[in-house]
Nucleic acid binder design. Structure first.
Lengths: 156, 156
DNA sequence: CGTAAAATTGCAACATTATAACCTAAGGAC
DNA sequence: GTCCTTAGGTTATAATGTTGCAATTTTACG
């Protein structure tokens, strides 16, 4: 059973959409159709998804589909904090604990491609550890790990 | 005084070149002119440098200069462990403590653009912390932090 | 040596990811 | 409604990275 089916993923998505809507309301921002659909797609794919993949999916649904469309939507969602960019993959994933979060961490399975976001608490701890050790004023931190997830390790 | 002049940078470069040459000898690999020159350029620039910047510099010097030339050299140097890729910048930097190292961490100053590699020991500790906490079998870890370096913080 | 195998490089084309510039349309404030 | 701001449409282009194949150089080895 793929990881994407180990839980009620529709519930994930609807929660994520609710959160995004709420954040928009709080900040006086607009959750437009394209933005909403991009966010849904990011969640539905469940795996890190490239901008051009999203673009293709939008296109199939009759949305306008030039690169700026999807990049603008992604920029908005990144800013809102409901999506993260995984720079080692040039891909985007939904965030399951948004807010005003600047530190991110992912575990990326080499086998199945799933990217699991590390718990905010752990990331924060890592960040703080690093702040203490170095005389930099750290603003953001991002951590990307690769290896095998528990599932793939077991079946390997 | 720019950070690049706070130390004997030529010494850095020659040390790095020596190390690379030694690693090549140990592993029966060839340090060819292009590879050597790319490594020198990466070090000379002192800041994370894009592949196409390196390509332009090679070109000025009369080297062959099509993208594969520089990407192949970079791949070789990455594999050798004497260069790292900073994925959030799509750029490359020299490694000052090579060997067979898979875990990397950088502090990238938003102001001056310098990327400082975090001490291997610290990175290793971070990595181990994460290994213990999660049931993934982690193979590589990369950590990228942004903020202000001590220098830029002081002069700001 | 001389020849075959392997590694490296040259080269052309192409693929992927992302942005710029400029204009039109939609939504909200008054 | 009018104005202003924000969002989206469109075209083109920039920036980054890869593939495939031929030519060359290096190495291994009889």
């Amino acid at each position: 059973m793929p990881a994407s089916q180990q839980h009620d993923h529709n519930h994930c998505i609807s929660t994520a959409m609710d959160t995004a809507r709420t954040l928009c309301e709080q900040r006086g921002l607009r959750m437009t159709p394209v933005r909403r659909r991009v966010l849904e797609l990011v969640w539905q794919n469940h795996k890190p998804t490239g901008a051009y993949d999203l673009l293709a999916q939008l296109s199939e649904e009759g949305f306008n589909s030039a690169p700026p469309t999807v990049y603008r939507a992604l920029d908005f969602l990144l800013e809102l904090g409901v999506v993260h960019r995984i720079s080692s993959l040039n891909a985007f994933v939904g965030c399951d604990h948004p807010g005003h979060e600047h530190d991110t961490g992912f575990f990326i399975c080499k086998e199945c491609g799933n990217a699991t976001e590390l718990p905010a608490k752990e990331i924060k701890k890592l960040h703080e550890t690093l702040v203490k050790k170095f005389s930099f004023s750290i603003e953001t931190s991002n951590h990307e790990l690769t290896g095998l997830c528990q599932n793939c390790k077991a079946t390997a």
